[in-house]
Design a protein around this nucleic acid. Sequence first.
DNA 1: AACGTGACTGCCC
DNA 2: CGGGCAGCCACGT
Length: 115
Amino acid sequence: MAGRSNDDSNRDFFELVWEVVAQIPYGKVTTYGHIAAYLGARSSARTVGWAMKAAKGANLPCHRVVNRLGALSGKHNFEGPFVMEDRLRSEGVVFAEEDRVDLNKHLWIPGEDDQ
DNA sequence: AACGTGACTGCCC
DNA sequence: CGGGCAGCCACGT
């Protein structure tokens, strides 16, 4: 057994992602890439998407996570294809275009004191 | 163990 | 502005 516990790196990447998502402020959004970069895995943006999928059912604001273009790439993974957009609009999030959030106004980057 | 797929991203045409 | 290609990581078959 040897303890391999060395540090918090033992935690699953998914769990770290969920913690970041839980920190996204109300009315703000972030991207898969920024979350991955914040966790030191800039190339794992895709894995962040898997974490979201695995988080389905959890009490996480996963609707605040969009792709780099602000598009709701995961809307079809919610209870309905309209739930994600509906939830964002409820928080006052503005859409620059159809199915595309205005990141210029609502982008929140983990680690940045923007809260 | 190999292959295909995907809630991604960057680069090129 | 759209479409294709490559790199990346985890998962299902």
